[in-house]
């Protein structure tokens, strides 16, 4: 990780002041292109990264571990997996079906989390570079 820097690391051209927008310096370089280095170390972007990580990391570890467990049990614990649960439906078939269910749950949870926590933060970061003309 690079050291935390103040949100603007090199001189950026001052943005156009508007009446209703709070004035903050736009992270745009001399040619009007976004200053990616400065954005990458800005607080808003770091916050976005933290929010992304907070969901994706545990969710990915969880679903991969759950899937691998299922596969390993199928390969090495056939006896356990063929224990009947409901009539002829055994543990293995139920667990397999539950994999589908958990996939749907994680998918919907991620969609919801993105809408609530990620998208607004993405908009915040994008606002750092959006000039007034683009907002119009």
């Amino acid at each position: 990780m690079t050291k935390a820097l103040p949100s603007v690391s090199r001189p950026a051209t001052p943005g156009f002041a508007t009446f209703d927008e709070p004035s903050h310096s736009l992270l745009i370089d001399g040619d009007g292109e976004p200053d990616f280095g400065a954005i990458q170390t800005s607080d808003d972007f770091l916050d976005l990264k933290r929010r992304v990580k907070r969901f994706i990391l545990p969710a990915t570890v969880l679903f991969l571990a759950w899937y691998v467990t299922f596969v390993l049990l199928s390969a090495y614990a056939a006896g356990f997996m063929s224990t009947p649960l409901f009539g002829t439906v055994n543990v293995g078939l139920t667990m397999g079906f539950l994999q589908i269910v958990t996939t749907i749950i994680i998918t919907m949870a991620y969609a919801r989390y993105s809408k609530r926590k990620l998208d607004p933060q993405v908009d915040k970061v994008r606002a750092l570079v959006e000039t007034d003309e683009e907002l119009a």
Binding site: F63, Y67, V71, S74, L93
Partner: peptide, 21 residues
């Protein structure tokens, strides 16, 4: 039977990688 069913589970779970990463 069961061993055939395995394929389909992998193919559903896999979409989480596409979605999140």
């Amino acid at each position: 039977g069961y061993d055939g069913f395995m394929y389909s589970i992998g193919w559903v779970v896999a979409w989480l990688i596409g979605l999140m990463l």
